[in-house]
């Protein structure tokens, strides 16, 4: 089978699976943006997709694509390491025109897939998985205070809870930065591997890669920044209460223990 046995065939599998995942991300990102405009609209989308047969087929297809892309990445990397031979170069210089991300696609891929696991635990487990359990008969299966169709409530809770919400926002932004670098090389490289490139189009194809990566990541980032701002706004609204708490602590002549401070903060702020 030439898709497995020839180098260009293996790269074609990487290209097609990668591009298909990019299209999925565009679709996913476009749905997320609904959150910024209307929570109701987003929940309607959650209900529409949920655990319907088409959503399940899609999910299985996506899982297959991720596994294919991941397995081929490992296979190609092992082959490429072997092709370098047993002795490594003592000196390797930076080369002009060689982008950093192009040489670190596997590492970036690991970062992306690592955060994907976190993301699945944060949302998929509490939404589609819960619905699947309900369909299978486990009606009281629940891992979240939010209904599986209340996606907006779940997102808002994760990203706006004081401190933890902001931590999640930053984590997701780190994920998006890694994804941006991965796609910036991935998109143009996939088109190049599929043969859609020539001398004239070289710059254009690279530009398409950068634009595509920015569009995908931008769609997701807008939502994260929206909730980051929302969460920080909430924190600021509590700021007077914190100031008050500090004043109360200062009136305590001698702070006997840390617990006194914690108790005071908790009673005043929360």
């Amino acid at each position: 089978m030439w898709l497995k046995d020839s180098s260009i065939g293996r790269k074609l599998v990487m290209s097609i699976s990668g591009l298909a995942l990019v299209f999925f991300l565009l679709f996913h990102g476009a749905m997320n943006v609904a959150l910024v405009f209307s929570e109701e609209a987003y929940n309607w989308i959650c209900e529409f997709l949920g655990a319907n047969w088409y959503a399940l087929v899609g999910t299985l297809g996506l899982a297959g694509l991720v596994v294919l892309h991941f397995v081929y990445a490992l296979y190609l990397t092992v082959q490429n390491r072997l092709a370098r031979g047993k002795d490594r170069y003592a000196v390797t210089a930076k080369r002009e025109g060689v982008e950093w991300e192009s040489e670190n696609m596997l590492v970036l891929g690991f970062v992306v897939i690592g955060f994907l696991v976190l993301h699945m635990a944060n949302f998929w487990f509490k939404m589609q998985f819960t619905e699947i359990m309900h369909i299978l008969g486990a009606h009281d299966f629940s891992v979240s205070e939010f209904a599986p169709t209340d996606g907006a409530g779940l997102v808002k809770a994760l990203f706006t809870t004081p401190i933890w919400g902001q931590v999640y926002c930053v984590l997701y932004l780190v994920w998006l930065v890694a994804l941006w670098f991965h796609l910036r090389h991935g998109i143009w490289s996939a088109l190049h591997t599929m043969g859609f490139n020539n001398l004239k189009w070289m710059k254009r194809v690279k530009c398409i890669g950068t634009l595509g990566a920015t569009l995908v990541v931008g769609l997701f980032a807008v939502v994260v920044f929206y909730y980051l701002g929302y969460g920080i706004g909430e924190l600021c609204a509590q700021a007077p209460a914190v100031v008050e708490a500090v004043e109360v602590i200062e009136t305590v002549p001698v702070v006997d223990s840390v617990e006194v401070v914690v108790d005071t903060v908790q009673t005043v702020v929360l």
Binding site: R10, K11, Q79, N80, L82, G97, V98, S102
Partner: peptide
């Protein structure tokens, strides 16, 4: 035994 191109340039 040559490797697979990843378009690093």
């Amino acid at each position: 035994g040559f490797g697979n191109c990843t378009n690093t340039g």
